[in-house]
Computed example of a mutant assay.
Amino acid sequence: MRVGVVGGGIIGLAVGAELRHRGADVTVYDPAPAGAGGAWHVAAGMLAPGGESVFEFPQLEPLLEASNALWPEFAASLGDVGYDDAGTLGVALTADDVTEMAREWKHQKLSPLTGSQLRDREPALSPRIRAGAFAATERQVDPRRVVSALRTVLAGRVVARHVSDLSEIDADAIVVAAGCGTEALTGLPIRPIKGQVLRLRGEPGLLTHVIDGAADGRHVYLVPRADGEIVVGATQEERTDHRPTAGGVHDLLRAALDLVPGLAEHELTEITVGHRPGTPDNAPIIGRLRDGVFVAAGHHRNGVLLTPITAKLVADLVLTGTTDTIADDFTPGRFGCA
């Protein structure tokens, strides 16, 4: 079977790689295959199925957990992609922050930790931190390494081409995984949601866990890499521009330094702006749009986490016509599309 995948981000590449692994003749169409314009390039790579998304769309939780379970094998198949299973420390600076974060911790059935217990695990944390929790099943991966590895798997199958109409694709089946560009190709309601992310660099070892915290009402996550880089994110703005702003950078840095004062000596190496592809209910669109056309888009904050399960579900659907019932709540039909 000849399959055209429109979109060369982390979702499109993973779908293409899975289809090729199962014997399909795959071509991935990407307007900038050597570029870094997708949401994956900005993403920190937290694999956290118990986050805020489960409150927005409860049916999303089983999908997030199922994909999280696939990540160890998926990462191993790609080589060194920065996969780390040290877990996440949720932390809260003030009493109001504790109230905010405690909802997530309770939902995840995590045992509360005192400030001193948190600092036993992560000495660089501020002594002002009041409480927190440890999520042992949360992991991280470097999306930039994942995309590089997937491009290697699909060497010779990624074509530098902008697709403006699906009729341009000569294939037995088409998968639209074009992120924020999916709406123009399909009519599905996918909007860009701006996010600003910072990258800091210092001596390796300041942090060993992902930190997911609140500081004076500002939510921030800190994702440490083995080489000393720490990703700090992320704003969430209903905007379409690509401009980094002083206010966004200030809010991220202030919250990060409140939680981990030692970051003040780190070099600020990168300020990046990207756009998450969001849907009206902030859940992904995975399924058949019409005969021969399938969609894998709109993953919002969970694109990296949902990569392996999306690839599996879409490949099942394209090659066999059916897929796991876990995808039933995420079809294009919920937006009035066949």
Rank of each mutant, 00 (worst) to 15 (best):
V220K: 00
P308Y: 07
R218T: 15
L93T: 02
G217L: 06
G4C: 08
G35T: 09
V159N: 13
T307E: 04
L257D: 04
A69D: 01
G8V: 00
P58N: 11
K194D: 06
T235A: 03
F330M: 03
M101F: 06
S116R: 14
V159R: 15
F74P: 09
V293F: 00
Y221Q: 03
V273C: 04
M46I: 11
L200H: 04
G37H: 02
T322H: 13
G23I: 14
Y83V: 10
R290F: 06
G12T: 09
L118Q: 08
F57Q: 15
T272P: 00
M1R: 11
G156D: 09
V318A: 09
A171H: 03
D30S: 12
L150C: 09
L154Y: 01
G132D: 05
G247H: 14
Y29A: 04
R139P: 03
D85A: 14
L305V: 03
G115P: 15
N302I: 02
A177C: 10
A102D: 13
A69G: 01
L113Y: 08
H242V: 14
G262M: 06
S67W: 10
A69Y: 12
A133G: 09
A34N: 14
F55E: 05
D97F: 10
T320R: 06
L253H: 01
V304P: 01
G303N: 06
H242M: 14
P284R: 12
A264S: 13
R239S: 14
E122T: 04
I174G: 05
K312Y: 08
L78Y: 01
P58K: 04
I230T: 06
